[in-house]
């Protein structure tokens, strides 16, 4: 009988590549940037090496949401055009050394980005980080195309509104065929759902039919945290922060049930299940 040589798995020879996940929505203002910052911060807090890429060239926001605006010296286009090295352009987060940011150019246009260069840059980032989260601009034009070009997975952010669901549906249709995008429903108001005044989680996902990554309530705390440049995901006392942390854990492979959503003003923590249906 022939002796078998134990071999190292193939992966050990090639360096492991991180995942490049684009956070997209079609419709503007539904919470892509807020989601990117919070999920990124939560992933870093779990000990993963994370870089957040602001792909919204011309409308830089992610640095502000993270409170890192004063540290940005170079941006994505500087790196693409070799005016700065990647190391010079990466901004280290003040709270976590696992978290870095690559800011967008504020005074340039989305058309200035060469898609092939963007793909190559994402590849480089995937060699250095476990998670590359790409904050996609609104719309489905060039900026969207560049943002998804270097990614291998998508998170679709949608609010419980007709226009947002419609645009999310359109965006899902534009993503590569072999992706299985995941859904985050943002700005849900449980009381309104209960009163039949807002689309429920089931209403939204009955249409989109995507794997549900999480649900985030509409809550003033998100705005307060953004004012301060402190992601809510790092606030241990916040229920919404916990929802972001659950999303991060789920993304990282933990078997986590859908988080609960706080009913504002009642101090009552409602299990998500009861919010799925709403009134007929």
């Amino acid at each position: 009988m022939e002796a078998r040589v134990e071999r190292e798995p193939a992966r050990a020879s090639a360096p492991p590549r991180g995942r490049a996940i684009v956070i997209t929505s079609g419709k503007g203002g539904v919470g892509k940037t807020t989601t990117t910052a919070n999920v990124g911060a939560a992933l870093a807090a779990l000990g993963h090496k994370v870089v957040l890429v602001d792909a919204d060239v011309g409308l830089r926001n992610l640095d502000v949401v993270l409170g890192l605006e004063s540290r940005v010296k170079f941006h994505l286009l500087d790196v693409l055009e070799e005016k700065a090295t990647l190391d010079e352009a990466l901004v280290r987060d003040k709270r976590s050394e696992n978290l870095s940011l690559l800011a967008a150019a504020q005074t340039r246009e989305k058309e200035d980005v060469v898609t092939a260069q963007m793909v190559a840059l994402m590849e480089r980032l995937r060699e250095r980080f476990e998670y590359v989260l790409i904050d996609c601009p609104a719309g489905i034009e060039m900026g969207f195309k560049n943002a998804i070009a270097g990614a291998d997975h998508a998170i679709v952010v949608c609010t419980p509104e007709v226009s947002a669901v419609r645009d999310a549906d359109r965006v899902v249709g534009l993503l590569p065929n072999d992706w299985r995008p995941q859904l985050i429903i943002n700005r849900l108001r449980p009381l309104l759902v209960k009163k039949g005044k807002m689309l429920s989680v089931d209403d939204v996902n009955g249409i989109l039919r995507l794997p549900l990554l999480g649900v985030i309530a509409d809550e003033p705390g998100v705005i307060v945290a953004t004012n301060r440049g402190e992601p809510l995901a790092l606030d241990a006392a916040s229920e919404t922060g916990a929802a972001y942390r659950a999303i991060a854990a789920k993304l990282a492979g933990a078997d986590i049930a859908a988080p609960s959503v706080r009913v504002p003003g009642t101090g009552f923590f409602s299990k998500l299940g009861s919010l799925f249906g709403g009134r007929a």
Binding site: V162, D169, V193, G196, L199, R279, A280
Partner: peptide
């Protein structure tokens, strides 16, 4: 309830999309 109206409008709008 307006959520029912929203659901119905969404169905039609996506249908035609």
């Amino acid at each position: 309830p307006s959520s029912t109206t929203a659901k119905e409008r969404l169905r039609l709008v996506l249908l035609s999309d």
